[in-house]
Design a protein around this nucleic acid. Structure first.
Lengths: 154, 154
DNA sequence: CCACTCTAGTTGACACATCAACTTTCTGCC
DNA sequence: GGCAGAAAGTTGATGTGTCAACTAGAGTGG
């Protein structure tokens, strides 16, 4: 209970505001590009990308852990993607509860078509905005924040 | 049409991946905190924060521009917030199409209660992970990316 | 073999975001 | 004045994310 809350300094607030603004604009723009170019959402893209990178067939939970999503989110997402024919669910013989998620041929084709275009957008909108030094610095800062997050309670 | 797409270099991809990962974890965690601490979504928070900062009464479109949202998003959001008593809509006398959005007393109280807690989370999870130098660097990098984005087509 | 607990995954309700289509009012121009 | 077009907002459809509750099979100790 502190009656006079400690606000951020001007520099801290500036950094926070700039970061938030950049992040929203950049992510939003890329999401719109993916959608427009390939008809996939950013969620479709990342799931399909990670799944095919890993061989196109994974246990549900392994996939969820790989993209760091909770199972509910993944379940809904996979359900939608299955309905659209990008992936299929298969029963798991050794574990009656389990499921394999498999990229369909259409799924493979979708990600193969989408990936180069997406990378081009990442390059154009993000990579080319910065020098390699700045990219390295940003990576270092990001990793530091993640490490810090993982040390903090909850 | 390039048959051999130019992928990112390892360093570029590392920077991109680290940034995305950090951003998702950090934003997600803060959103969950706002929700848990105050019962407001991150969207509620930002709208209410900007609105009260600006005096608690704004034209709909000015508010939308201030938070850089499209009008549809703002309309839905304001509708939900009005239903929950955080803001109210008022007719605009000089412009028959227009509307004022006003923070209700409950809205003012909600943001006043939520803001210090939220700032504390930003400090704990983000500011304290980094030195002031790193914060400055991140701000500079962010501003550079935004400037770059604003120069790019679409 | 039985009970207890854990893990895998689903489901339903609800809040949120986006897109496109729509209504109403204003403004500029003839 | 009158009309074309732009601006202010709304609306509905659809996809997405979160939470909590749920089912069902697997593992473990007695």
């Amino acid at each position: 209970m502190n009656a006079t809350p400690r606000w951020l300094t001007a520099e801290q607030k500036a950094a926070w505001d700039s970061f938030i603004r950049m992040q929203e604009k950049l992510i939003g723009r890329l999401a719109r590009h993916v959608q427009a170019d390939s008809g996939m959402s950013a969620a479709d893209y990342i799931v399909l990308a990670k799944l095919t990178e890993a061989g196109g067939r994974m246990r549900f939970m392994d996939l969820a852990k790989l993209v760091e999503w909770e199972k509910s989110r993944m379940s809904h997402q996979v359900g939608r993607m299955a309905k659209r024919g990008l992936v299929a669910k298969e029963e798991c013989p050794d574990d009656g509860r389990g499921a394999f998620i498999v990229a369909t041929p259409a799924g493979h084709k979708a990600i193969e078509d989408a990936a180069p275009v997406h990378v081009e957008h990442v390059r154009r909108l993000f990579v080319e905005a910065l020098t390699q030094d700045e990219l390295d610095t940003l990576a270092r800062i990001s990793n530091r924040v993640v490490a810090h997050l993982e040390m903090q309670p909850d």
